[in-house]
């Protein structure tokens, strides 16, 4: 049996309500760099319904050479079976060498399902993707064992090489107005497996500041002492226009709800600014926030683990420090 030639880098663009999601533009930045190193074309795959043509053109302006679109009313919302049938079909027909998706609720569900269908390897939650100059293989680097070590993984024989990457771990690709490329509409496979799962409703988040996408995060740890003290942290969050997060301890004690939890068993955040208040910095928590661009920590314990990853550490009582911080930040804001 001769092996088909696998060629090209694909990124999975995501859509909601007919609009391409911003995370797709982050993938284009990664995909473009891989495609250039492999001297090959970059394809954005979009599976959905009635996606705005301007958004498809934008995928090209941000680096895609080609956009493959599969459109059907059955594909409007993400449901794993029909979406997997489409992506597996495209992979079998076009034989890409590399397929990357965002580690979102969609990507983390669709990619493992498809990897089994097309019998290939998949690496979750990569923070670095690179091409091995010697072999041309995709080097997939991710934190392992709670972020204590980094592991580089290769898919040796099977193709395509598949990986998911953490959202917000890269800046979106720049836009070059007028950049040329091709939008190719492909019919979904004839028998779309629908029906075994149906979306019957949606309950939108009440939080005004979803944590995972926040540019700034104020997180509280056990040092906040009780639920009644949360408003103090909220004041700082408001001053910084930040979302409020928490360590596992705080959530386990019921001081904040689970959607606030940052860490291995909660959310991974990659904000531009992270401020930890009374957070000791367990491995479990660090794994969920240490990729933040700037880290500020307030803790009474000078040896707290959180200081190992912080840019600025304030060794002191948060109940004394936070009110001063809030005052000075608000003053600096109103001065600009």
């Amino acid at each position: 049996m001769t092996r088909p030639v696998h060629e090209g880098v694909w990124v999975l663009a995501e859509q909601a309500g007919g609009r391409v999601l911003g995370v797709s533009h982050e993938l284009l930045a990664r995909g473009r760099s891989l495609a250039d190193k492999r001297r090959t074309a970059l394809t954005a795959v979009l599976i959905g319904h009635n996606v705005a043509p301007a958004d498809l053109a934008e995928l090209i302006e941000r680096g895609a050479d080609r956009v493959l679109v599969m459109d059907s009313p059955a594909l409007e919302h993400f449901l794993v079976e029909p979406h997997a049938a489409c992506l597996s079909h495209l992979i079998r027909e076009h034989c890409p060498e590399i397929v990357i998706a965002a580690a979102t609720s969609t990507g983390r569900t669709l990619m493992p399902y498809v990897a089994v269908q097309v019998h290939t390897g998949l690496t979750a939650d990569c923070t670095v993707l690179d091409i091995d100059p010697a072999s041309g293989a995709l080097l997939q680097t991710r934190p392992a064992i709670g972020g204590n070590i980094m592991a580089t993984i290769r898919t040796s024989e099977h193709r395509p090489q598949m990986a998911t990457v953490r959202p917000h771990s890269m800046r979106p690709a720049d836009r070059t107005p007028g950049r040329k490329g091709e939008v190719l509409r492909v019919s979904p496979p004839e028998a779309l497996p629908a029906g075994r799962m149906r979306r019957v409703g949606f309950i939108p988040n009440k939080e005004t500041h979803p944590l995972a996408a926040a540019d700034a995060v104020v997180a509280v740890g056990r040092g906040i002492k009780k639920a009644d003290n949360i408003p103090l942290a909220q004041k700082l969050a408001d001053a910084l226009d930040a979302a409020l997060g928490a360590s596992r301890d705080v959530v386990d004690r019921g001081w904040l709800s689970y959607p606030h939890q940052i860490g291995l068993s909660g959310k991974t955040v990659t904000p531009r600014l992270y401020v930890g208040l009374g957070v000791s910095g367990s491995i479990q928590h660090l794994a969920g926030m240490q990729t933040a661009e700037t880290i500020v920590a307030v803790n009474t314990d000078p040896d707290a683990q959180i200081f190992h990853v912080a840019d600025v550490g304030i060794v002191g009582n948060l109940f004394d420090v936070v009110p001063v911080l809030v005052k000075k930040i608000n003053a600096a804001r109103s001065a600009t």
Binding site: A115, H119, T120, G121, L122, T123, L139, Q140, P143, A144, G147, N148, I149, M150, A151, T152, I153, R154, T155, S156, E157, H158, I295, V298, P302, F307, H308, V309, A310, D311, V312, G313, I314, V315, G316, N317, D320, V321, V324
Partner: peptide, 28 residues
């Protein structure tokens, strides 16, 4: 297994924490 771990390394700690003792008003 289609995937293989080819390298394991310690993450680089690039941050140098600037620590401030904030025990009194001036420190804070």
């Amino acid at each position: 297994s289609p995937t293989r771990v080819v390298n394991i390394f310690l993450p680089k700690v690039a941050r140098q924490c600037e620590k401030f003792p904030a025990a009194d008003e001036a420190g804070i």
